[in-house]
């Protein structure tokens, strides 16, 4: 009786714009918060550093310096949206990078080496996905195996760093497409392209919607007849592929493959995704948010190096920020559960 009455009432009075907006887009709030923090960081840095922070050069460099992390964060977003986690991305990136550098150094043409890097990443992702989906292994443990495997294989390829001489790869980094003082490199374009493709897949394909549905309730998704197995394996393959791509970007950026690259980078990627408003239990979040998260991360890093502070502050601040976001998310989730 009561429900019916309230429902009619609700329609009679007509929900306000704000109510409608909140009932439709409440899940976006954490992402808006991330945008807020990014703006706050920009403004704060601009004031404290007396106006030479927000410059075209700095902003352009932000994308350039963090392109690899952006690519990783995109892959991580897929995984976290299903409620999983992928610890392997840093190692996969290192493996892919050193594999590419080695192949190129051995005279393999780039048209072969680059696909090999991507496939290498995707293969590790596939292994993780199969373990998670078909052997009921927790994502944490399965991707832990991926982490060990990627790191070990990186050292198997080479114990030391390998310089890249291949011009087409270096071109990705050295080319600067300029617009006034602004510039973007092909690696930056790759990263932005990855974001765009991911946004398309997540919001405009059934695969993408299945990813969200699994994060909401895997059992429901299965009972609704969605292709859960395919999507669950798929997100890890995508994350592995992104790991491979990040290896390509990082190798181009640093001009070398190095098996020690990306130790702990998986944590940075997870932190960026969470700061960008994706909820770790899955089902809520946006890949655009992850991009914002990466920029927040990169901006903090830039500010710290501007201020000449020790890099150890970086870890502490990112940790604190992560904590802040987690507590906020926790409050949001608790509230939305309370409403039901």
């Amino acid at each position: 009786m009561t429900a019916m009455a309230t429902r009619i009432q609700e329609r009679a009075s007509g929900p306000s714009f704000l109510q409608t907006f909140l009932s439709r887009h409440g899940g976006m709030m954490p992402t808006f918060a991330a945008v807020g923090i990014l703006l706050l960081l920009f403004v704060g840095a601009e004031i404290f550093l007396r106006g030479d922070f927000i410059t075209p050069r700095n902003i352009s460099a932000l994308l350039l310096d963090n392109a690899y992390l952006l690519v990783l964060a995109v892959g991580m977003t897929f995984v976290i949206l299903t409620g999983g986690i992928d610890l392997s991305v840093g190692s996969v990136m290192a493996f892919s990078g050193i594999l590419g550098a080695k192949l190129l150094a051995d005279g393999v043409p780039a048209v072969v080496a680059v696909p090999a890097m991507l496939l290498g990443g995707a293969a590790i992702g596939l292994m993780i996905g199969i373990l998670v989906q078909y052997f009921d292994v927790q994502p944490f443990i399965a991707s832990l195996a991926g982490l060990f495997l990627g790191r070990g294989l990186a050292y198997v390829v080479s114990l030391s760093s390998i310089k890249v001489e291949e011009s087409s790869l270096l071109w990705l980094q050295s080319t600067r497409i300029r617009l006034g003082d602004w510039y973007i490199t092909p690696t930056g374009l790759i990263a932005l392209g990855t974001v765009a493709i991911a946004a398309f897949v997540l919001h405009l394909t059934r695969f993408g919607r299945t990813v969200y549905a699994i994060g909401g309730s895997e059992q429901s998704a299965r009972l609704m007849g969605l292709k859960v197995a395919r999507a669950k394996v798929g997100v890890y393959v995508i994350s592995g592929l992104c790991g491979g791509l990040a290896g390509l970007v990082l190798t181009a950026y640093s001009g070398a493959g190095y098996p020690r690259n990306g130790i702990g980078t998986e944590l940075d990627a997870i932190a960026a995704v969470v700061i960008g408003g994706t909820i770790l239990t899955g089902g809520r979040g946006y890949v655009i948010g992850s991009m914002i998260g990466v920029f927040v991360y990169g901006t903090i890093k830039t500010i710290i190096s501007f201020m000449g502070a020790e890099q150890s502050w970086m870890q502490i601040i990112v940790g604190a920020l992560l904590l802040l976001f987690i507590v906020v998310q926790r409050a949001i989730v608790a509230r939305s559960e309370g409403r039901r």
Binding site: A271, E310, Q315, I316, G319, A320, L322, I326
Partner: peptide, 16 residues
Amino acid sequence: IATLVLMLAGRGVALL
């Protein structure tokens, strides 16, 4: 997640 915070920040503290 809760322990990830310290995992990230802890080494920074140690370095400090």
